[in-house]
Design a protein around this nucleic acid. Structure first.
Lengths: 123, 123
DNA sequence: TTGACATATTCCGATATAGGTATATATTCC
DNA sequence: GGAATATATACCTATATCGGAATATGTCAA
């Protein structure tokens, strides 16, 4: 079996740096294909192919506007990634460490009736 | 040119679903290779290869323990992904919409001296 | 040393990519 | 209709994957 297709989900689509740049560009608003190609200084066919991948996973949508095709960011498609990565936030955010410290402190004086609930572990 | 190697960065390493599952497993704590293989019900060589990729991008670390090798999650490696995706939070979080609504409201009465600063757009 | 266990590596095949170039499709204007 | 512009697709090459099976490496124990 080969690697998962880039069109299988947002994770794979976003692994390509050029596609991430395209999404960041479109976060500023709708843009035509040539406009994106000029901003990224790469060829038009490449941009068309990248946009096709992004569209396949629902990260962008298209609208016909004369002979142009305006591509718009559908940022909601990134939420699954955000949700998954957020499950690991404790591993770089030291506020979790501070919470643990606080727990240790107050437990030296008197154990709390109910322990503060920690965010759940990722799946 | 071919697709970026899976070892090029966290984005590519995490595009593979099995590797995401491995990271979620290790979030519970250190585990040996066979233990991971059993939990995911896949072969040991596959797990070894996935862990090699994850190690190459700094998402896990290893520790020798007798004949076992204990793999530990290095969650900080996921922060670049979190940072990048968070730049798009406005596209699925409606609190940004509520802020815009609030701005429109108060501007109908009297323009504020300084507008509340919106989070910056992603790069 | 030999055996048993844990892990890593190698070889294979099928597949899918990204970039480049050329070309096809579509729309507008004259 | 025909030219010009904007975009999409087709074809090619080099490369890198994932999974499976076999094998190599490494460590402990008797």
């Amino acid at each position: 079996m080969a690697r998962s297709p880039t069109t299988s989900d947002a994770f794979n689509a976003v692994a390509e740096p050029q596609r991430r740049k395209i999404l960041s560009l479109l976060a500023r608003g709708e843009q035509s294909v040539n406009c994106v190609a000029a901003s990224l200084s790469c060829t038009q066919p490449q941009v068309s192919k990248h946009l096709k991948v992004l569209r396949a996973v629902g990260l962008v949508s298209v609208r016909n506007c004369g002979k142009q095709r305006m591509y718009k960011l559908e940022g909601g498609g990134l939420k699954p990634i955000h949700d998954w990565v957020s499950g690991f936030e404790r591993f770089w955010n030291d506020s979790f460490d501070r919470l643990a410290l606080y727990l240790a402190e107050i437990q030296n004086q008197q154990p709390p009736a109910a322990l503060p609930k920690m965010p759940p572990l990722p799946d």
